[in-house]
Design a protein around this nucleic acid. Sequence first.
DNA 1: TGATAAACGGGATGACCGTCCCGTATATTC
DNA 2: GAATATACGGGACGGTCATCCCGTTTATCA
Lengths: 171, 171
Amino acid sequence: MRADAQRNRARVLEVAAEVFASEGLSVPVHEIARRAGVGTGTVSRHFPTKEDLFAAVLLDRMRELCDRADALTFFAFFATLVREAAANRGLAEALSGAGFDVEAAAAQAGHDVSARLRALLASAQESGEVRPDVTYADVKALMAGCLAADLADPAALDRLVAVVTAGLRRS
Amino acid sequence: MRADAQRNRARVLEVAAEVFASEGLSVPVHEIARRAGVGTGTVSRHFPTKEDLFAAVLLDRMRELCDRADALTFFAFFATLVREAAANRGLAEALSGAGFDVEAAAAQAGHDVSARLRALLASAQESGEVRPDVTYADVKALMAGCLAADLADPAALDRLVAVVTAGLRRS
DNA sequence: TGATAAACGGGATGACCGTCCCGTATATTC
DNA sequence: GAATATACGGGACGGTCATCCCGTTTATCA
């Protein structure tokens, strides 16, 4: 790959990460190109579709989250994921089912956050910490609920995580 | 109002209710007109914007929900709202903050479901049934979480409501 | 340094949709 | 049964975007 192509690709990725995180997935690709100081052709050559671009942006975060998962309990990982997504509007939108398939992208890249969460859930249920009837899909839904928190209230996220955590514990 | 205009208005409203409920808010207005057997002009004359149409559709449901609220506890009303929205994709999308402002529409129409829910929450907190720190916005977020349930799993909704209910109770 | 392949930019293209307009049709009224 | 206001249909318009294309530029390497 030519040196300028490599630079441009990195620059686009960097800008896209910022923009998706702060403004969500509805930002036009043209706008990302503009802010990166490149043409739209350059973006779509490196990332043929917008979803490809988002998947590439997600990769780094996914890798890091997966690494962290190994040292955490189910509840701690849940809280970590919620906090991560709350600080990243694009990720929150994607998790809330708005078009993009996050899980497929992550799994394909070999950093399957959902598999980690699934495993932690199973073991937390086996040890009796979590109600045995809840499913992985339930946990995802509750995560989406936490992400609907009022962003203007800095304590809201913590309250919601506390409520959901209490609800998930074996009663 | 001319008789045919009255008929058409009712027909459009009826079709829109079905379509929004089953396919969500992204259905084009043209499609609603087509299924109602009228031209798009007829729809937009009766309901100048798509949001006006959705607000009109919502009115009936809101009225009924408000009436029911008076006889229910906070937890029962919460479950009722979740079930109502789960059966109505358009309502679920609107509640999950996707563009349309449900609360404003309902309040304007004098059937303010959110005011009822707010009141029930306050009294449930006063009597000690619900954690005192949760806010109305928190409850709305948790409702959105329940609505993210896996629709293919008929028991999922009940599980999520149970988890959230347990979490909201004074611990 | 010159040839060549690779990459660039940004305008063109096509799709989708909400809203508006206007020539036509029809319900209502006298 | 004619006159008139009212409503109808559906095409036109304007705006938004993702994606593609192609004439131009530039990095690379001999």
